[in-house]
Simulated assay, not measured.
Amino acid sequence: MRVIVEHAELTVVAGRERDFVAVFEKAREVLAEADGFRWTELLRCEERPRTYLLLVGWESVEAHTVGFRESERFQRWRALVGPFFAEPPSVEHFRLLGDRFAG
């Protein structure tokens, strides 16, 4: 199965990190409703604790950039997490080249 991974670096307003993580639990449910959604992970940077890496698996770039971003679901998602952003997220898309290797 083809998967595109959205890589979004998110910088959260200082002091709002815990609230952001709590709200993200609701926001990922909105992501999960989107056509073409496969999975999501949220990671927190150890060196820069206000920085998070959001990874979202999509069936195609268009599933994210058109199907989700142009839908009312995106408006709901952004209403939940947007107030926590200290700056606009940096977003790129990557193609999986094989299965995850666990050694």
Score class of each variant (00 low, 15 high):
Q75M: 07
A32K: 11
T40W: 01
E17M: 07
L31E: 13
R76S: 06
D99R: 13
F84K: 01
E46N: 05
R2E: 13
E41S: 10
F74V: 00
S60F: 08
R50T: 15
Q75D: 13
G36N: 11
T11L: 14
K26W: 01
F101H: 12
F85Q: 05
W58Q: 03
V81D: 09
F94K: 13
L96E: 11
G67F: 04
R95G: 04
W58V: 06
E9M: 10
R76C: 03
H93T: 05
E6S: 08
G103V: 12
P83F: 07
L10T: 05
F68E: 13
A27D: 04
G67D: 07
V66I: 15
R100N: 05
E9G: 00
M1A: 10
E92F: 03
E46M: 06
T11Q: 11
V56K: 12
K26C: 02
R18Y: 03
W77Y: 15
C45N: 15
H7V: 05
K26H: 14
G67V: 09
V12K: 03
M1Y: 04
E92K: 07
R76E: 14
G98M: 11
T40A: 08
E92N: 09
A8E: 06
P49D: 09
E59V: 12
L54A: 08
E33W: 00
D19K: 03
D19W: 03
G98Y: 08
S90A: 14
Q75P: 00
A8H: 06
L53F: 04
L10F: 11
L96C: 08
E9A: 02
E41R: 13
V13C: 09
L97W: 04
T65C: 03
T11Y: 11
G67P: 08
H7N: 14
V23M: 06
A34N: 11
A79Y: 00
L97G: 13
V5A: 08
E6I: 01
G67M: 10
F24W: 13
K26N: 13
F37A: 04
A34G: 12
R76H: 09
T40H: 11
A32P: 00
F20E: 01
H64K: 04
L31N: 09
P83Y: 06
S90W: 06
A32H: 05
L97Y: 10
V30N: 03
A63L: 09
E9I: 12
V23D: 12
R100K: 09
G98F: 10
L10K: 01
E41T: 10
V66C: 08
E25F: 01
E47M: 06
V56M: 13
V56E: 12
V13F: 02
F85G: 06
V61C: 02
E41C: 02
T11P: 02
F74P: 00
R18E: 15
L10N: 06
V13L: 14
A22K: 14
I4D: 02
R18S: 12
F101E: 11
P49L: 04
R48T: 13
L80N: 00
R18F: 02
R16Y: 03
R78W: 05
F37D: 06
L42V: 12
L53V: 10
A22N: 12
V3Y: 00
T65W: 07
W77N: 05
E87A: 15
V21W: 01
A22E: 15
G82K: 08
E25H: 11
A86R: 07
P88Y: 08
P49E: 09
R16P: 01
E70A: 13
R50E: 15
R76A: 12
E72D: 15
P89E: 09
Q75E: 14
G98N: 12
Q75N: 07
A22Y: 03
